[in-house]
């Protein structure tokens, strides 16, 4: 059985998080389901919604977004008009309702939606078992990279932030560090099956955007227009002559693409290879959109 607290300062949240077994809850749209299914069993749930981390504010030539700002506020923020890909990604994620509750930090840290992982009947490789059931079962919506876990990264925001050269500020009771958004993620291996690099006592406090790109766009293919995870989500940004592309839905973490060879490293799995065509198409549309 677990306890619950809702600290009103970051310092109190960090102190609570320093206790082993505690876990941050923001909007709860992902974590409550994981708790419900027994896929997460924190001893203390720390609700950070009142910890004062929800502001979006100017920061030098860029913008600083609090980790508990909702996707809905990001999608319409006047301060973010020059980060088109980010606004488009926030506006495309999930449904209007979820966007009202879901936060930026939670979106970046949400766990895989692989239905084998989420099913309570099995423990798949990523959950600590021996078998990736997706590879012997259905994986038409999974990733394009072979490996132990072929799940598809679900966050629309992550690729949009990565191409914007964004960083995350990560705090714990012992200090603060800042790192590129891409460095939040790691490929799971036999010894450590986590997809995130965050320590158990760490919380994302802010996402920092440096000066905006000259142009950017977020393109996605979902199962239906509203309310579905990205099958393939592609963010493209242009800084002068430099093009940056990153995608969700193609590997188990956000994937940085080589703009001149977007399918590099993404051979596809037997049932998911169709995503290669989608990715290539989105990439050529994205390139046109940011260079026009």
């Amino acid at each position: 059985m677990s306890t619950f607290c809702r600290p009103t300062t970051l310092a109190d949240a960090l102190a609570a998080l320093a206790e082993p077994g505690s876990r941050v809850l923001a909007g709860g749209t992902d974590l409550s389901g994981l708790i419900d299914r027994g896929l997460a069993s924190p001893t203390t749930v720390i609700d950070v919604q009142d910890a004062g981390l929800d502001r979006i504010e100017r920061c030098g030539a860029g913008v600083r977004i609090g980790a508990t700002a909702t996707l809905a506020t990001v999608a319409v923020s006047d301060l973010l008009t020059r980060w088109t890909a980010l606004r488009e990604a926030a506006a495309a994620a999930a449904s209007p309702l979820l966007r009202n509750v879901a936060t930026v930090g939670g979106n970046l840290c949400q766990h895989t939606r692989c239905w084998y992982y989420r099913g309570v009947e099995w423990t798949c490789w990523l959950g600590g078992g021996d078998t990736c059931f997706a590879q012997i079962g259905e994986h038409e919506r999974h990733g394009l990279q072979p490996g132990d876990c072929i799940s598809a990264h679900p966050s629309d925001l992550a690729p949009a932030l990565i191409v914007s050269d964004a960083t995350v500020v990560v705090a714990s009771a012992t200090g603060i560090r800042e790192q590129p958004v891409a460095a939040l993620y790691r490929r799971p291996d036999v010894d450590d099956r986590s997809l995130l690099t965050l320590g158990p006592d760490e919380v994302i406090t802010h996402v920092v955007l440096p000066a905006p790109p000259d142009a950017s766009v977020y393109l996605r293919e979902g199962q239906r227009e509203a309310f579905s995870f990205p099958l393939v989500g592609l963010a493209v940004a242009r800084f002068g002559e430099r093009l940056v592309m990153a995608a969700a839905g193609v590997a188990n973490i956000p994937h940085l693409l080589d703009p001149d060879d977007v399918l590099h490293d993404l051979p596809g799995n037997p049932q998911s290879a169709w995503k290669r065509t989608v990715l290539a198409t989105l990439a050529s549309r994205g390139r046109t959109a940011v260079t026009m």
């Binding site: 619950f4 709860g28 749209t29 409550s32 749930v45 919604q49 309702l97 509750v101």
Partner: peptide, 12 residues
């Protein structure tokens, strides 16, 4: 605010 109460903890 419209909220899916199945995925919202009562304590929240």
């Amino acid at each position: 605010r419209p909220t899916n109460s199945c995925s919202y903890l009562a304590v929240q």
